[in-house]
């Protein structure tokens, strides 16, 4: 009887090890380096680290802090694609220089909104729920737990030169691109594209003064 139970223990230990090996292997496969979720998490973690770094909180380090955040953000977003879809049809009527100028203005605007949002929540927890990948497009579903409340942030990404870049994000179901498209349109309708450029420049200067 005693011999029997020893065998049973051995077999179950063996099975357990096999199971652990298999499930571990599966996990390693599931979250490879090239996953959009993994890439996104890395970048967001990097931003959070800069935001939370005590060393960089000093007032004289403010510029350095901002530059370091921008460096990460610029690697994460496909600003050209985003700028284009935020303008819709209007993009087609622009010259190459107009486009370049608009892309950089647009990038600064998005950086402000996005970093501001992340900054406000820098002490909160970010959770990565799941991802959906199809061909060269992906969705990554995340949420920020802020003051005991869950704020969903969904990213839409597209692969470009082997890297996943953000094309749009939805905070509580509100798409950044769709929101800017409506916003820009209401200006363009009244003041044309020149008016829009002027307004964005003004807005950026104003917030520059405040900070």
């Amino acid at each position: 009887m005693g011999k029997y139970s020893k065998q049973l223990v051995l077999i179950s230990v063996f099975l357990l090890m096999v199971w652990m090996l298999l499930s571990g292997g599966e996990k390693a496969l599931a979250s490879s380096e090239n996953d959009p979720l993994v890439q996104l998490q890395k970048s967001v973690d990097e931003i959070l680290m800069i935001l939370q770094s005590e060393e960089l909180q000093a007032p004289e380090k403010k510029d350095e802090r901002k530059q370091r955040i921008l460096a990460v953000v610029n690697r994460m977003f496909d600003f050209r694609g985003m700028a284009r879809s935020s303008l819709g049809q209007n993009w087609n009527n622009l010259t190459a220089e107009e486009r370049d100028r608009f892309v950089s203005l647009f990038a600064s605007l998005v950086e402000q909104r996005y970093i501001g949002k992340i900054d406000a929540y820098s002490n909160q927890k970010v959770i990565y729920k799941n991802q959906r990948v199809r061909n060269n497009k992906a969705r990554v579903y995340t949420a920020i737990i802020d003051k005991d409340m869950e704020i969903p942030i969904d990213y839409s990404l597209q692969i470009s030169q082997g890297k996943w870049l953000i094309k749009d994000l939805k905070i509580e179901n509100v798409s950044l691109i769709a929101n800017y498209r409506r916003d820009f349109n209401s200006i363009i309708r009244k003041e044309q594209f020149a008016g829009l450029v002027e307004k964005i420049t003004e807005q950026l200067e104003k917030s520059e003064m405040q900070n």
């Binding site: 605007l109 402000q112 909104r113 929101n179 409506r182 916003d183 200006i187 829009l196 807005q203 917030s207």
Partner: peptide, 9 residues
């Protein structure tokens, strides 16, 4: 403050 026409946004 990051919208151009806050009313529309």
């Amino acid at each position: 403050e990051t919208a151009l026409d806050p009313y529309t946004a």
